[in-house]
Amino acid sequence: MVKASLSDPTLAAEAPPQRSRDYFELFGLPAQFDINIDDLAVRFRKLQMRFHPDKFVSAGAVEQRVAAQISADINTGYRVLSNPVSRARFMLERAGMNLEKVERQPMPGDFLLQQMELREAVTQLKQGNDSERTTLHQQVAELYEQHIEAFQVALQAGDFDVAGSVWQRLLFVDKLRQEIELATAQH
């Protein structure tokens, strides 16, 4: 048997596996992209008030384990559904899309070109002034909104292939958005 050693790197990361729980069902919400975040927060708190391990300290071991798993699912579900990008991902997975494949599919040239330009602009933000930062921030925020809308339209039309492609581009736009926000916060 070949025994993996320290100098023998052993693991290579793959995409996360399919999730087993339907978070929409867990939170008692219809499976649609458009959700009210405040409503979600209320449901999150209500569910944790009931299932958090603190509520099962004196319960039997089996109940404790089951409740802890539900509590963990509530936490993960809340995080997944709160963020539009991860919510979009979850909806695609739920519809049976192979996201590994989606992430690897080729992207339109003009989109990649635009991304390269924007990325360049972000890296130069550190020397930039406030107005440049605001302009870029707005530009990327609009791009983000456009993709969110396009995703919803595709989803409503039941066209998961298009929704998948939009989501693939959304990942890029979201990363840009986060980088700009980080640069602004650090400024």
Binding site: M1, V2, K3, A4, S5, L6, D8, P9, T10, L11, A12, A13, E14, A15, P16, P17, P53, A68, Q69, S71, A72, D73, N75, T76
Partner: peptide, 20 residues
């Protein structure tokens, strides 16, 4: 509490054990 799972794979042909 939180549970997270991720899939990994082997890095070499014929690898029968690995260290996590």
């Amino acid at each position: 509490p939180v549970t997270r799972a991720q899939e990994f794979t082997t890095a070499r042909d014929g690898q029968t054990g690995l260290v996590v």
